[in-house]
Simulated assay, not measured.
Amino acid sequence: MNKTLVISLFTLAGLLGAPLAWASPELARSKNCMACHAVDKKLVGPSYKDVAAKYANDKDAVAKLAKKIREGGVGSFGQIPMPANPQVSEAEARTLAAWVMAQK
Results as ranks from 00 to 15, higher is better:
100 V>G: 01
94 R>Y: 13
79 Q>W: 06
84 A>V: 04
7 I>N: 13
14 G>M: 14
53 A>S: 06
92 E>N: 04
43 L>C: 07
55 Y>M: 06
11 T>S: 06
17 G>E: 10
75 G>I: 03
15 L>I: 04
84 A>G: 05
76 S>D: 13
19 P>A: 07
42 K>D: 07
24 S>F: 12
17 G>D: 11
36 C>R: 00
78 G>I: 09
15 L>H: 03
94 R>K: 12
85 N>C: 08
51 V>P: 00
24 S>W: 05
72 G>C: 07
12 L>M: 15
62 V>G: 04
69 I>S: 07
83 P>E: 13
36 C>Q: 02
90 E>R: 06
37 H>F: 06
17 G>A: 09
63 A>E: 09
47 S>H: 04
21 A>C: 13
17 G>F: 11
87 Q>H: 15
92 E>V: 00
20 L>W: 10
9 L>V: 12
4 T>Q: 13
74 V>L: 02
100 V>K: 00
25 P>L: 08
45 G>T: 00
48 Y>V: 02
103 Q>R: 08
77 F>H: 09
60 D>S: 11
93 A>S: 09
86 P>N: 09
12 L>C: 15
30 S>R: 03
56 A>N: 01
103 Q>D: 12
100 V>N: 00
73 G>A: 11
22 W>F: 15
74 V>D: 01
103 Q>W: 13
54 K>N: 14
35 A>C: 02
85 N>K: 07
11 T>A: 09
7 I>E: 15
97 A>V: 02
70 R>G: 11
80 I>Y: 14
38 A>E: 08
3 K>T: 05
81 P>T: 07
18 A>W: 13
15 L>G: 04
33 C>W: 06
20 L>H: 07
79 Q>C: 07
103 Q>M: 14
33 C>R: 01
26 E>I: 04
93 A>N: 03
54 K>T: 14
20 L>P: 02
62 V>N: 02
83 P>V: 09
12 L>H: 14
69 I>R: 01
18 A>P: 12
2 N>W: 10
9 L>H: 09
26 E>Q: 04
32 N>V: 04
28 A>W: 00
63 A>P: 02
54 K>V: 13
14 G>Y: 10
17 G>L: 10
57 N>Y: 08
15 L>R: 01
68 K>T: 09
90 E>P: 02
17 G>M: 10
58 D>C: 13
34 M>C: 12
25 P>D: 04
59 K>P: 01
55 Y>G: 02
21 A>F: 11
26 E>S: 03
92 E>R: 01
83 P>S: 05
20 L>A: 12
63 A>R: 08
19 P>S: 08
103 Q>F: 13
6 V>C: 09
82 M>S: 01
89 S>Y: 03
8 S>L: 12
5 L>K: 14
19 P>M: 08
28 A>D: 01
41 K>A: 15
16 L>R: 12
87 Q>D: 14
71 E>W: 15
74 V>T: 01
60 D>Q: 10
46 P>C: 13
71 E>P: 12
21 A>W: 09
95 T>P: 04
54 K>S: 15
30 S>I: 05
70 R>T: 14
29 R>A: 07
32 N>E: 07
